[in-house]
Design a protein around this nucleic acid. Structure first.
Lengths: 160, 160
DNA sequence: ACTCATTCGTTAACCATTAAACGATTTGAC
DNA sequence: GTCAAATCGTTTAATGGTTAACGAATGAGT
């Protein structure tokens, strides 16, 4: 990426509606987030999904966290988890222990190194997220959150 | 993806702020969009980026559209365009013609088949986008668009 | 005219993602 | 008890994305 982006142009002869503008806005916001977060995470030799995975593993702590469950928590397909974990295991951030009572399952846990790195990231993570959202007041952030979640909720699949 | 997602849990012991909730909301909204649009586009043997590329090529029409320019329009890296175009050329949707006055450049244009497919998609595309946004009223869609764009604008790079 | 920096497109290597097929294990119907 | 179905993790092939390095063509300074 070695050049400047250009504002998205909707004047292509196809109809412009509130739905279309909203959709384009979501896509652009996501792209902006990605562009801001990736260099930030790479400073810790992490990627956004790897960080997300570590947060979830941290939340489960010593509780049983199968790879299946992890995939559902991350809204991600099951095969994806395999390669993600493989890389993170190689880096020593997580460990997989087989469940002796059901030898199909493997439990995922943060290693001590993983916990340590996660704490280190969180020391500056709040500041980074505030920077990403700096264009909006706190009230506006909450308003945007509510609208996005309302949009998402309409397509929610049952089962929490 | 063969199981149900679970609502994202922010109770992981790390601070929850308006910024963090907003960021998670954007990520979830994007994921929802992806999940809704991919099967829709695959019905036309297209992917979201391929459709986006076709819309841009359509907008340029017979005007000069280099691969460089296309990458900037799509907010995407230059090498990415190469492989994207290669696949679409194989499908006969676009064509690349060398510029005889500057033999480094190649101009991208929709083929007749590409134009035809694009018109076919657009016949139902508006309805699809309205479905994605059905959880929000028109006023709410506009409000969300404005907030997202305000957030994005704070990180805008100069040069349009 | 020559050289050297710049620009354009490509290739290679990597990461993240998906669907589909597969092997191993557990479970349940009979 | 046995065998078929469901479940868990993995592998493979495809797509889309990145950065880094490269070759070819252009252009500008001297």
């Amino acid at each position: 990426m070695d050049n400047k982006p250009i504002s998205p142009n909707l004047e292509d002869g196809f109809p412009v509606s509130a739905s279309r503008e909203a959709m384009v806005a979501v896509l652009r916001a996501y792209g902006t987030l990605q562009r801001l977060m990736e260099p930030y995470f790479s400073q810790f030799d992490l990627t956004p999904p790897q960080f997300q995975l570590m947060c979830i593993a941290h939340r489960f702590g010593q509780d049983a966290l199968t790879q299946r469950r992890l995939a559902r928590e991350m809204y991600v397909s099951f095969p994806n988890i395999t390669v993600l974990l493989k890389r993170m295991e190689k880096k020593g951030l997580i460990e997989r222990n087989g469940n002796p009572r059901d030898r199909r399952e493997k439990y995922v846990r943060l290693t001590e190194a993983g916990e340590k790195l996660l704490r280190r990231v969180w020391q500056v993570h709040q500041k980074q997220m505030d920077m990403v959202m700096e264009g909006l007041s706190v009230a506006e952030r909450k308003q945007m959150t509510a609208l996005l979640n309302k949009m998402t909720a309409a397509h929610r699949i049952e089962g929490e």
